[in-house]
Structure formats: C-alpha cells, structure tokens
Amino acid sequence: MSEITQQTPEGGTPIAGENPVYLKDPVLDATVRMVVELAAQVWIERERRITLESLLEAQGTLSRAAIESFKPDAAQAAALKRERARFIEDVFKELRRIPPTV
C-alpha cells in the first residue's frame, strides 16, 4: 500500500496520492486496471454492434455477408487506425503509471 498522502488544512483523514498501490506490486495494479479497462472497451463495442445489427436488420439495408466482405478505402482505413490508437491508449495508458522504482 502506497503511503504517499496529503493532509487537508483542516485535518481529517490524510488523502491518498495520485497512484496508490494496492496489490503490493505496481505491475499487478496496472494489470488489474487494464483488465477492467478492456472489459469496458469490449462492452462499448458490443453495445454498438448490437445497436447496429438491430438497426440494419430492421431496415433491411444490409446483409451479414456484406459486413464480412467489407474492405475499407484509404480514408476509412486511416480513420480505423486513429480509432485503434485511441483504443490502445485507453487500455495501456496504465503502463505509464508504473513507477520505475518501488
């Protein structure tokens, strides 16, 4: 457990600092955070896919086969890469919070 704390001018319980370590090893803390973050990201995608598939089916505008064979053009591919970078940052930003020494 990290012992870095801040005290308010009016006393009370000292408040933990920015990056408390709960699991004795900061790598373990980061790993747990990444797992939860990944779960959030997976849910975002699942929620969107369910939404899209429901809309597409209801409107009869697209078949499942068309989704499977989709090839992005250059602009779409660039947009996908930007999305991928954001996804990776969301999940792995935790790595920056591991202090070099404990």
Binding site: T5, T8, G12, T13, P14, I15, A16, P20
Partner: peptide, 14 residues
C-alpha cells in the same frame, strides 16, 4: 476509512 483516504472524503470519518 477507505472512502476517506482513497475516495477524497477526508472529513467523513470525523
């Protein structure tokens, strides 16, 4: 205690 220290509630224990 946890809420006070780790969730920014310094006065709640008192």
């Amino acid at each position: 205690w946890f809420d006070a220290r780790h969730n920014g509630e310094p006065y709640s224990q008192d």
